[in-house]
Nucleic acid binder design. Structure first.
Lengths: 151, 151
DNA sequence: GTAATTTCTAAACCTAACTTTAGGTCAAGG
DNA sequence: CCTTGACCTAAAGTTAGGTTTAGAAATTAC
């Protein structure tokens, strides 16, 4: 434990609460980049604890790993991020979250209208807005409609 | 086309915009129950168009298929649902949606606090609330923390 | 110095929500 | 009657986000 050799993956796992396998997976997805010690083992900076914490928070917000990687790219690559750097990308994160909340709120308002009109099966119903479709849950292909109504 | 033999799966697919394979899949998940004609082919009621539309809307709201099945169980089984029946279960749907919006809104407020305090890596941060964890995206196991902090 | 931990890689497995494929049957039109 | 298109089942493939497993090598602990 010569002062500054960095954290081993197990230590990072304990610090973040993530599984070791998850951390390796995130590396494969380009979310974190450890260096290797002489024996080929991964070593992490203390700042990586914060980085992974950010990943976990962003996931709660519903971002996919590619989206998170994109947000993280807003951090400086040449130096350890400062608190201000984190604040900056947190603002980006907040924008994602706001958009998500707005979409859901709009859907709710549409539903309220539909509860009244009982139009639940009409393609012209606002709830069928293709822009909202297919994006909300994000797994596997979703096929959209583009058809003539008629009940 | 002897008046009332019901809809074939392809016709239902065209009316709803869903893929034929998806409709069969929903049947396997217990979301819809067609009867079979003499030749063994699925036949659907016109009310099933509305049923599937409801499924699609509920999906946009982020409900899983088991959850949707649960909500649909609120419909009367012995007769074709009336507009009022649909309104009733739409209210249930709205409750789900409200909860989702509230969770996200709370997360947003926490993030706003954290943008100010820069605590992004501390397990004691409100953003690490285990209740919100693991539930937001819903695929595969998520491991939570229950560890001693220390940075 | 040796035993017990950790870590390493690669590949297989898992869930959700579907789609695709393969091989065969049903139904409608001419 | 026969062809074409729709439908059938079962099984395998797909994506996201990981976990599990297996066998080997590196570290750490005593």
């Amino acid at each position: 434990m010569a002062a500054s050799e960095g954290l081993a993956i197990g230590a990072l796992a304990r610090r973040t609460g993530l599984a070791v396998s998850a951390i390796r997976y995130y590396e494969a997805q380009g979310l974190i980049s450890p260096w290797r010690n002489a024996g080929g083992q991964r070593r992490y900076q203390r700042a990586d604890i914060r980085r992974l914490s950010f990943v976990m928070i962003a996931q709660q917000f519903g971002l996919t790993l590619p989206e998170i990687r994109e947000v993280l790219s807003g951090l400086p690559g040449n130096r350890t991020p400062t608190p201000q750097d984190w604040k900056d990308i947190s603002v980006t994160l907040r924008a994602h979250l706001d958009q998500r909340i707005n979409t859901l709120t709009r859907l709710r308002d549409n539903l309220d209208g539909c509860i009244g009109c009982g139009c639940l099966s009409l393609p012209k119903c606002a709830l069928y807005n293709p822009d909202d479709r297919a994006k909300s849950h994000g797994s596997g292909p979703r096929y959209l409609m583009g058809d003539s109504p008629n009940t």
